[in-house]
Write a protein that binds this DNA or RNA. Structure first.
Lengths: 200, 200
DNA sequence: CTCGGAACTTGACACTGACTAGATTGCCTG
DNA sequence: CAGGCAATCTAGTCAGTGTCAAGTTCCGAG
């Protein structure tokens, strides 16, 4: 009850609720990631995030226009993180391993990044971040000598991306719990990639 | 104004609105598939589906308990369709091709099937249908001589499933529009699968 | 014929996203 | 050291949604 020092007594039902949260944008982003990791993007509610941050229900809208805006920001951040993770990959299977690791370390980002229906497709920050990540992917693939496989290099890239993306997606959906068991998923993936992408 | 023959005048604001729709469950399912195909599962509203069927807002709940129930039913139907599509696949790359074709022909089902956060995981109909599809997948993979690749057959199955699933997912998300161009995606996939899964 | 249960309606409640106007704050300029 | 201004946050409102409980209509078995 006895509030020690009501520096500004606008409302102290939460311990130190100042008018300006300080870093609301960041607080909401991380809270959103928690919720998405637990319940998926469907369970996300701006009002709930506001409550968690101890802030009024309309406050989030000032940082992210809408729900779609919030998810778009998360996706953009995800693509930036992915690009960074892929940046200095040594070779193809290393890049794939990093892709899988990224999905495991940032499951919320990963889900949102590939849920186009939830995003504002024409958002500038999003499209540039995505382009950056795509570039990183492309350079990772450029090391593979596609002619060894009898297909052009773009198709080799599609194959590699499909393999990594499918593995990561199925993994996050707990569809590989049986086969992978308690081995390190990233290691399992490297084995697969090495086997499939060895030169004939 | 002059309603021709008010066979049962409960309400004739729609031409022939009878009290019993006749096949509401089916009508709602197909309408839901349309909506999901267009806007994704996020854009799905039970009330909207009810309106489309010309039925009161709470009617859908009688056939599918809730929104989750509806999506679960769609997922179960999807796994059954997938199992049927995979049933008489001749070999591995044929199965993969069928997997990709299934995703293209039933995009709504495919999306919902792999969105665990939206489904009732313990639903009986769903789990049995999924088991059926998993079996069909497993038998498709059993033809590959895994020892040729130096990995055990379960891992070969994981590799094949990952490749097909990743390709299908990226395709539906329009992430492969560039590389695939206007070629038949299914054919492109068969090329990839043949290349990666050839015996050394 | 009737009567029981299935199919659907009606009404209500709590919750959500979105929008608006206004209050508060802290910083930056002069 | 003011004082103003823009960013930040509050408060109130509206339409739309899922879900529940209680009615109404209809069909078909007995």
């Amino acid at each position: 009850m006895a509030s020690a020092e009501t520096d500004k007594p606008n409302r102290s039902d939460k311990q130190d609720r100042r008018y300006h949260h300080g870093d609301l944008r960041h607080a909401i982003l991380t809270a959103a990631l928690d919720v998405i990791t637990a319940d998926g993007p469907a369970g996300l509610s701006l009002r709930d995030l506001a409550r968690r941050a101890g802030v009024s229900h309309a406050a989030p809208a000032h940082h992210f226009r809408d729900r779609t805006g919030l998810l778009t920001a998360i996706a953009a951040e995800g693509f930036a993180l992915l690009a960074a993770a892929l940046n200095d990959a040594s070779d193809l299977k290393d890049a794939g391993g990093r892709y899988v690791r990224f999905a495991r370390e940032h499951p919320a980002h990963f889900q949102v990044m590939f849920a186009p229906g939830l995003l504002r497709a024409d958002d500038l920050e999003l499209t540039t971040a995505r382009a950056l990540a795509t570039d990183a992917l492309r350079t990772s693939v450029s090391g593979v000598h596609a002619e060894d496989f009898g297909i052009d290099s773009r198709l080799a890239g599609v194959a590699a991306w499909s393999l990594a993306h499918g593995f990561a997606t199925l993994l996050l959906g707990h569809n590989l719990d049986g086969p992978v068991g308690d081995r390190d998923p990233e290691e399992v993936f490297r084995t697969l990639a090495t086997t499939l992408f060895r030169t004939p």
